[in-house]
Amino acid sequence: MLVKAKGTQQSVAASRLLDGEAVWLGTGNIWVEDVALAAVFDGADAIAEALCFAKAEEKRQVVVDVYPLDVEITDQGTRPTHLRERLKGIGPTVRRDLGKQARQPTA
């Protein structure tokens, strides 16, 4: 179940309307398919502003199911703190051949 984000560092997740692909808001208001590249918003104002943009993208039929999630910054990039959000970034753990985890990392 979706866990309410309450940390100071948050990212914004969504799913693309046309194909349902999980995406996150990246830097420069671009949607990215890799959670590690998700922009991290620090503090209530930045988070609210990002969400505002994301909701507007929902109205423009770009994405659906927009919500904020708690994240931390690691050497490998942005990492969600909650298991559900980490799995969303990977794919089914029971089918390692499917979802994002199965893709060749782009150079």
């Binding site: 194909d19 349902g20 659906v64 199911d65 559900r84 799995l87």
Partner: peptide, 27 residues
């Protein structure tokens, strides 16, 4: 829906009644 003539809120019950969910990784 794709043209924006109905909102996601309104589309959701319609797609659900046609068996279509939005799940963690995909529809």
């Amino acid at each position: 829906r794709i043209k924006g003539e109905i909102t996601e809120e309104e589309f959701k019950p319609i797609r659900l009644m046609n068996g279509l969910y939005l799940q963690l990784h995909a529809y």
